[in-house]
């Protein structure tokens, strides 16, 4: 079993997780993440279980909510906790171009 992730693997997960990593950290994570993944790899040795999956130990099925409006926040309160805002809007650094918007 290899003992380190590659640099690229670390950079890939750091990108997925949106966490900046320094050169030093890359080396550290190459070892640490690999150790955790080696632990996890053990599930592949487990046998004898059936295909049923359990997402969560839910007691009931979902009870739907009535479509009735409730209280909403004052826009002032919405922007109060935001590090940056302009008027009633929350502001972020410019998002490259409109075309990039992934939308829904």
């Amino acid at each position: 079993m290899k003992e380190k992730l590659t640099r690229e693997e670390v950079l890939h997960v750091a990108d997925l997780a949106r966490i900046d990593v320094t050169e030093e950290e890359i080396e550290k994570y190459q070892v640490e993440l690999k150790q955790l993944l080696n632990d996890i790899e053990k599930v592949n040795d487990v046998e004898g279980y059936d295909d049923d999956m359990m997402v969560a130990p839910w007691d009931d099925n979902t009870t739907l909510r009535e479509d009735v409006p409730g209280e909403m926040l004052d826009p002032k309160k919405v922007v109060e906790n935001a590090p940056k805002h302009t008027g009633n809007y929350i502001a972020v650094p410019v998002v490259i171009t409109e075309n990039e918007s992934e939308g829904a």
């Binding site: 997960v13 997780a17 966490i19």
Partner: peptide
Amino acid sequence: VKRRIMVGSYLLS
């Protein structure tokens, strides 16, 4: 936290 988020991201990717 960072370690767990990164491993978690990897596990779902």
